[in-house]
Design a protein around this nucleic acid. Structure first.
Lengths: 184, 184
DNA sequence: GTGCATTGATTGACTAGTCAATCATCCACC
DNA sequence: GGTGGATGATTGACTAGTCAATCAATGCAC
């Protein structure tokens, strides 16, 4: 039943399966065979498309990063005032999607992988720079200390997300907005 | 060369070796054999003392948590004013030990493991509660909003640590102190 | 001689990745 | 409009290696 033009379909299925598999059993338990089975293809096919297990996982993280960027862009487009722009960036980081189990698992694994894998680290830097830059743009009209506030706010977002994802923090978004607005 | 009373010595050596091994190759690459070799014992002996690989890793995390608690206690003891107590708690979190490569690797792995392993999650909760409680005690004389500030400060500490450990943030401790003191 | 400390040898399960082969589908040519 | 490659999609079978965990056996110390 091979048809032409399956590539993008298969790649997407494998990327989603990889994320699901990370969430299911923990990062250490993912195997190419499991990813492939979940995606409904054979293990060699996964290699055919991605070349290696690491490449699949990296593609999965890129996928998640793209989704976050899209969420942020959408919210920024609808924001009219500077403060609304700040809240848009914060809100995107705490959108429901960010707390879905697969997302949390993938992010945590992402941090771990970044520590040793240069390609993953580059991707993490992209995220960090993007978040900081989005905050900086939004904060500039609001305070002369925009760079410092943006830097701290980015860290605060990561930290609150981490605690909310793994703990029992409530109202993470409100917490972050309050802290930022207290510094304006 | 079996001598009596080797147990605590062996356990300590294995725990330290486990931390070193996590830092060396990434969490996914640790094997009982490698831990045992680094500790100068055989793999079966590691099983003899800990029963399982997971138990070794959990013990390693407990070890790190104990060290952080000791650092915090020491600094708190030397702090005289309420503000100094806040800074003591913050300072302990950003002590040089917290940024040693082995410590960073172990913490990141800790977060990942906590997501699926209940015993690890319990340990993480202990850390979170302890940090929050230390901050709360220190903040109470300084602001009526101590609970909210403590909650946010704890998240800020985690977030800044994460960025400092994996990124190029400078002066993490100063950043956190400024944010906290802006809310008093 | 009793018991703890320690290991060599082994097991059974699982891993990423490779290779050659098969099969449907498409395109060019007649 | 039919025919025959060419091409992409797909897999079964396999390699070579790793792993956690177990067990029986050995040796030192008391």
């Amino acid at each position: 039943m091979p048809r032409k033009g399956m590539e993008s379909e298969r790649r997407a299925a494998l990327v989603e399966a990889a994320i699901g598999e990370i969430a299911h059993g923990g990062a250490g338990a993912v195997t190419v065979a499991k990813i492939a089975r979940r995606a409904g293809v054979s293990a060699p096919l996964a290699h055919h498309y991605f070349g290696s297990k690491d490449a699949i996982l990296l593609a999965a993280m890129r996928h998640i990063l793209r989704a976050l960027a899209a969420e942020t862009r959408g919210r920024l487009r609808r924001a009219e005032t500077p403060l609304a722009r700040v809240r848009a960036v914060v809100g995107a980081s705490f959108a429901p999607a960010s707390f879905r189990e697969e997302n949390v698992a993938a992010w945590l694994d992402f941090y771990v992988a970044a520590r040793t894998d240069p390609a993953t680290m580059r991707l993490l830097r992209v995220y960090q720079r993007r978040l900081r830059s989005n905050l900086l743009h939004a904060l500039r009209p609001l305070t002369p200390q925009a760079p410092e506030v943006a830097e701290g706010a980015a860290a605060l977002i990561d930290g609150v997300w981490l605690r909310a994802a793994l703990g029992e923090t409530d109202a993470p978004e409100r917490t972050v907005n309050e802290w930022i607005e207290a510094r304006l």
